[in-house]
Amino acid sequence: MTDVVQDQSVIVDRSDEVERIAKKEAWRRRLPILPALLFTIIVTQIPFALSVFYSLTDWNIVSGVDREFIGFGNYGELFGSSLFRQAAWTTVVMTTASVLLSVFFGTLIAILLDRKFFGQGFVRTLLITPFLITPVVAGQTWSTSMLNPQFGVVNWLLERLGKDDPIQFAGQFPTWTIVAVLVWQWTPFMMLIILAGLQGQDPSVLEAARVDGANSRSIFFQITLPQLRPFLELGTLLGSIYLIQVFDHVEVITGGGPGSTNLPYFVFQRSIGGGWEFGQASAFSIVVVIATIIFATLGLRLLSSLLEE
């Protein structure tokens, strides 16, 4: 026993050395991230901080009156404004509808594509294309070639089917026309993410389920869908992030026309789009940020709880 005690006293303890090397190593590992991190912080956080500051001031850039600090005044005004409430509601409808519909259709199409058939790769290529189209081009194409009351294909078809007066899509249903174009563009994106999920499934699990006597329906709802959850979440998250910011489609399809002004477009209208009320517009934009965060987290929670049951 005494031998062991003596031995221990001569063991080199390198914990300090190891810690020193580990620290040096940790910095060497951190270094490559720093340029990207600094760039992102400077370009994204400074404008945001300035936005917060502006939102607490009364500042109209054309009136020539000096910027004045008014605390939360803009925010109070904002919730009293019916135009703001309208824009907020439009944002909620537009985002929720386009995210949910494109996830829904994306899932259906992904399931269709997840089986071997003639020309599978070609059909996938056809399907992905709408996502690649420049948003302003997509918006213009739909509002002219497709849905225009005079020379749009859809109205021409409806006329063949016996409907006499053409539908003024962008005029009568501005928000839903925009949603339709958004769903057309984002369904392919959702479809590809979900397809990646479907194809990453372990086939032996599906085989085991079949051997256990499950039919296709219960396999889908009890095995496939839960496994798809992270992919559905990812699609919802990325979709929400991009779709809550929609501006291009609004601009080219309705120009913010009757009831289709969402918050980003509203911020634009109130400031450089002609309003020049920078203080107020900043307050709107802060609300958009908060709404985005709430939206994305709520969407994720909702989806998770739905799938957990």
Binding site: R30, I46, F48, Q245, F247, P264, Y265, V267, S285, A296
Partner: peptide
């Protein structure tokens, strides 16, 4: 992986939560 790499990654992604419309005014002024 550095320690807390998930946090770093989340920070990068979280900047996508900032709608461009919300930053356009300061960007325009800057």
């Amino acid at each position: 992986p550095v320690e807390k790499w998930r946090d770093v990654l989340f920070f990068f992604i979280s900047t996508k939560f900032l709608p461009i419309a919300a930053a356009i005014l300061p960007l325009w002024i800057l």
